[in-house]
């Protein structure tokens, strides 16, 4: 097999969906895992605005219910990232990436800032539209090669059409990668540091993983 991320160390079989841990995917998996644990145990930051001309400041406090919801969404996003990092099935990968997109909207859904809400709305629309080329790519791969398993596709006996790869990249780019990154970057203006950083980290991880997927196909 075409080993981009090193030789697979071990496999975890869920029927036809075989999860594989190679040095590359296990590194990304551990990164997502460690950050999810950070999110689980840490308290959110409190943004402080200094009032000019006076000896005063405003502290933005996050209420407990909002904190719980955002922590839940961040951990869900972390789990989705972990799944996307190690899965060995193309359709499963697209499902996990769309789950990451939904969770990212969820992380900032509770924020009261109007600016952040507008950015999240725009990001949500792009993430929604991005699923269309992504699943189209998975369907094209299934139709032209007869399989969805990356381990089978990596053997390179059947060529995946270039259009399918390009559609996959376009769809994943819609989930929060440059040049469609601006809406996501504005979402970080929301208070609550460890949770909103998960938006950024998930983009980075999925970017690294999709590069491997495209090279393997």
């Amino acid at each position: 097999m075409n080993e981009i991320g090193g030789a697979p160390l071990f496999f975890l079989e869920f029927g036809d969906i075989v999860i594989y841990f190679s040095p590359f995917t296990i590194t990304l998996f551990l990164l997502a895992l460690v950050f999810s644990v950070f999110v689980l145990v840490s308290r959110p930051e409190r943004q402080i605005d200094i009032a000019f001309g006076a000896d005063a400041f405003y502290a933005k406090v996050i209420s407990l219910s909002e904190l719980k919801f955002r922590r839940f969404m961040s951990i869900a996003c972390g789990l989705a990232c972990m799944g996307a990092m190690v899965t060995g099935d193309l359709f499963d990968f697209t499902l996990f990436v769309s789950l990451v997109g939904i969770c990212n909207v969820g992380i900032v859904a509770a924020v009261k800032s109007r600016h952040v809400q507008n950015a999240a709305y725009q990001y949500g629309l792009v993430a929604l539209a991005g699923t269309v080329p992504m699943f189209a790519a998975a369907a094209m791969v299934a139709a032209t090669t007869g399989t969805l398993s990356m381990l089978e596709l990596a053997e390179g006996t059947i060529q995946v059409p270039l259009a399918a790869r390009a559609l996959l990249v376009l769809g994943v780019m819609g989930e929060g990668m440059a040049p469609f990154y601006a809406a996501k970057a504005e979402m970080f203006r929301a208070p609550g540091a460890p949770y909103v950083i998960m938006c950024s980290l998930s983009s980075l991880l999925i970017f690294l993983r999709v590069a491997e997927v495209i090279l393997v196909l």
Binding site: F14, G15, I17, T87, D92, L95, S98, L99
Partner: peptide, 13 residues
């Protein structure tokens, strides 16, 4: 039976 993980991720979304 064969694609169980997909079935789990779809309702999760």
């Amino acid at each position: 039976n064969t694609r169980g993980l997909d079935t789990v991720v779809e309702p999760t979304i």
